[in-house]
Every structure is written in C-alpha cells, then in structure tokens.
Design a binder for these strands. Structure first.
Length: 270
DNA sequence: ACTGGCACCTGGGCGC
DNA sequence: TGCGCCCAGGTGCCAG
C-alpha cells in the first residue's frame, strides 16, 4: 500500500496528535506482524513522551528519551487517530494510547508491517543500509550514475531498491520513468548522466506532487484522518495498461518485471 | 557482489 | 451465490 508519499501523509497527519504527548498504555492485540512485536515494547513505551515522529524511507520513527519505536506499514498497513474508547475491529493490531484519551491505532490486514524497538535507529539492521532520501540534495543524476556502474539490472528494479534510494515503490517507479521518458527495462548502467538527472528530477517532482495530493488511494489507503489521497487521479501510467498514453495517445504496455506489474509507453519511453 | 525468485498474509475482483 | 484463481501499494532472505 504505502510508498513514501503515503507514509509522509501519515506522519504529517498523526504528528500533531502525538508529539509532546505521553503514552498512557500500549495495547497489542496481535504480535504476529512481519516480525513479532517485542514482548517488552509496552513496558518501554509506557510513561514515555513522544519527542518527535520522523520518517526514514517508508519507516516511521517514534522518538522517546529512552529509545525509538519503528513502524513500517508493509503493503496494507494504515494508522488512524481514534478515541481510546472506540472499539477495535479485525486487523487493528495495536494502539498507542495517550494520556489525552486519543490513541494511534495501527491496522494491517496482511500483517507485512512491523512495530519494533531500538535504542539506536541509525545502527538498526533495517535502517543502516538504506540509501539516501529521494527528496534530499544528495539524490541526483551523478549519484544514480555512480551507483549504476557495473550493474546489469533494469532501471526500474534499480530505483525500487531501497539500498539505492528509499521510498520508491511500484506506483512511483512507473510514474517517474514515464515522466523521465526512460524505458523501465533499460539496463541501469547504459543510461547517460543527463538522463539520470532527468530521472532524479522526475522522482522528486512526482513524489512532491503525490505528497501534496495526500498520497494515492487505489483501494484502501486512508490518511490518519480517514480521508483518501487523490493522487490516483493524476497517475499517467500506473494501472492504465491498454489505455492511451497521455502524451502520444498510443496504448500503454503492461509487462511483468521483477514480479511487479510494469506500465509504460513504448513510443515515449526509450 | 549482484541478481532473480520466493516467502510472508489477507482480501477484493473476476470468470465460470 | 459460490468457488477457485489471480492480483495487490513491500522487502528480507536464500541460492546460484
């Protein structure tokens, strides 16, 4: 479900409700997420004040004075602010209950998400090998060109690799490659520096626009206020196989690449 | 070191 | 209406 814009939309939505608030209790209804929710996490979090909520790639980091909770939404996860008294429904796996009477409720039908505890996020195994943030200065054509040297895989798989750059999932990989006019199957090492610069710019532009639109709601993504995003109305290629290219009118092609559906225009993308 | 493929899990949509 | 099949926004891990 969530790529960087959806996670950022979630972060912005929950931060005003959580930051500087004290955690009154933690309710874990199902510990069976991608990795088991640690037994000690309730004790670690109870009584702590949330100092900040940060995002690193698709991870949300809840900082306290004694450590940081890591939340990943997986494919189907979402977070809402509820009244503590509101009854939980199926797949509502955990609540962070605040002294204010509100709670952050995490729901994840497929349970690919995770909720973990770390003393030092920088050195955590899930975070330490992540590439740069796509919206940072360090992410540019030179960086991509350097990383692509000597590698044979397709550009789409390359930019979806979080060790190269974080936050780009299937939707935004497709959209960014279309915007940059690059064929998703092109070998990453064969792409010139200037075209890599176009790609980096396209990634930034697509992600910024999606964040402004509150993310993409294909089926069930909701911001923390329960409202859907509306970037799906602006998708140029994702989910539009056979439909006309918005640039040239030719029917868009769909192929499977790395087990993911891949949409592109064979006229506009080379 | 890189690459491709599998695994984890539930639910929605489709064709028959 | 029901069943089986395919697909889905992610990513760690394994073998080659």
């Amino acid at each position: 479900m969530p790529e960087l814009p959806e996670v950022e939309t979630t972060r912005k939505g929950i931060a005003p409700w959580l930051v500087h608030q004290t955690i009154h209790s933690v309710i874990v209804r199902d510990r069976r997420l991608r990795w088991p929710v640690p037994d000690k996490i309730e004790a670690r979090l109870c009584g702590q004040t949330i100092l900040a909520i940060r995002r690193r790639g698709k991870y949300l980091l809840f900082d306290t004075a004694v450590g940081t909770a890591l939340l990943h939404l997986g494919m189907s996860g979402s977070v809402r602010i509820v009244d503590t008294a509101e009854p939980a429904t199926r797949h509502d796996h955990l609540d962070l209950c605040l002294a204010s009477g509100k709670a952050m409720r995490f729901r994840d039908p497929r349970r690919f998400g995770c909720f973990l505890w770390t003393q030092n996020p920088c050195s955590h195994a899930l975070l330490r090998n992540l590439g740069p943030e796509p919206l940072s200065e360090s992410f540019d054509g030179d960086y991509l060109r350097g990383k692509a040297q000597g590698r044979s895989l397709a550009i789409k798989q390359f930019i979806m690799n979080p060790a190269i750059v974080v936050g780009i999932g299937n939707i935004y990989a497709n959209e960014s490659l279309f915007a940059a006019g690059i064929h998703p199957k092109r070998r990453c090492s064969f792409i010139s520096k200037s075209r890599m610069q176009s790609l980096a710019s396209a990634v930034k532009s697509v992600l910024c626009q999606a964040i402004q639109a509150g993310g993409t709601t294909l089926r069930d993504f909701r911001g923390s206020d329960g409202k859907p995003g509306y970037f799906q109305t602006r998708l140029d290629v994702y989910g539009r196989g056979g439909k006309p290219c918005k640039n040239c009118g030719a029917p868009l092609t769909v192929v499977i690449l790395g087990q993911r559906s891949t949409y592109y225009c064979k006229i506009c993308q080379k």
